[in-house]
């Protein structure tokens, strides 16, 4: 009886190593030699841009950085671009910007964006913009900021009492904010529970995996506009005509997506073929 001739087989560990190597190559090539693929602007990013552009003169914008360091490259480009745009309005139209973070890591991100990425020349801290640092408590912080601002916010990031910061003295709660915005790395239920009842425009910068999860709120208009992860950040940079991190990364995102789609297609067709042959 002849035994079936078997070809060489790869162990699962070696299969994984080949996959990892291909990932490296697929991501590295567009980094070394940028492909310059076009970045079409999606309607969702255009709506975010228009919503920010339409912020009326003298408005107060409250922005909450709800992300951690681990997703800096995912939502960082959108965060930087959105805050750049709002700071531009602070300069042009006397808009006031209040920024706070929901985590300690988020506070370092806010500090980094304000000091390294934004042009704050000509603006006065405490009168045009203020960084409140980390307000702990999760959903309690979100509730406190719009329910009783003065009790919740005792100091800014540097420990200056809120009573000594001119632009914070008159703020009591949610009614004093004209636009709310936040970034998140996951579910946005907490923000929706505490901020949606205020019926204010809400801007959202979210990672791509969470966009489908947030669609019920987006569809109902509780979230006015959103940025879709790294792609949203790249598109926003294009609209601002200030290429940055997002633009640098988007070629690699395109290539790795193509690689994964091709891999899935090959494996699916192979497994379907095996099922048809009855193996």
């Amino acid at each position: 009886m002849k035994s079936a001739k078997k070809g060489p087989t790869l162990s699962m560990v070696n299969q994984d190593r080949i996959i990892f190597l291909l990932i490296f190559v697929t991501v590295a090539v567009p980094m070394i030699a940028p492909l310059g693929l076009p970045i079409p602007v999606s309607p969702t990013t255009a709506k975010f841009f228009d919503t920010v552009e339409d912020i009326p003169e003298g408005s107060t914008v409250l922005w909450c950085t709800g992300i951690g360091l681990s997703i800096w490259y995912n939502t960082g480009p959108g965060e930087i671009a959105a805050l750049k745009h709002i700071i531009g309005l602070v300069r042009e139209r006397g808009v006031k910007l209040i920024v706070f973070a929901q985590s300690a890591e988020g506070a370092t991100i806010v500090r980094r964006i304000l000091t390294e990425y934004l042009d704050l020349g000509g603006l006065t801290y405490g009168e045009d913009y203020v960084d409140l640092g980390w307000i702990p408590g999760g959903e309690a912080a979100l509730a406190g900021v719009v329910a009783d601002f003065q009790s919740t916010v005792e100091t800014d990031h540097a420990g200056t009492p809120a009573s000594e910061i001119p632009m914070l003295i008159e703020i009591s709660g949610g009614d004093d904010f004209d636009v709310l915005g936040f970034s998140s790395g996951g579910m946005i239920d907490a923000w929706m529970r505490q901020w949606a009842p205020l019926k204010k425009p809400i801007l959202l910068n979210i990672i791509a995996i969470s966009v489908p999860l947030c669609m019920p709120y987006i569809d109902k208009g509780m979230v006015t506009a959103y940025l879709n992860g790294q792609r949203g950040g790249a598109e926003y940079e294009k609209l601002l005509m200030q290429p940055g991190m997002g633009t640098s990364f988007i070629d690699a995102q395109s290539m790795i997506h193509l690689y994964i789609v091709a891999m899935i297609a090959v494996v699916s067709i192979w497994s379907l073929g095996r099922r048809v042959k009855g193996q």
Binding site: L37, I39, N228, Q253, H257, L258, V261
Partner: peptide, 9 residues
């Protein structure tokens, strides 16, 4: 959705 998210799609 991958091809929707990636600009190359």
């Amino acid at each position: 959705l991958m091809l929707y998210n990636a600009p190359v799609g």
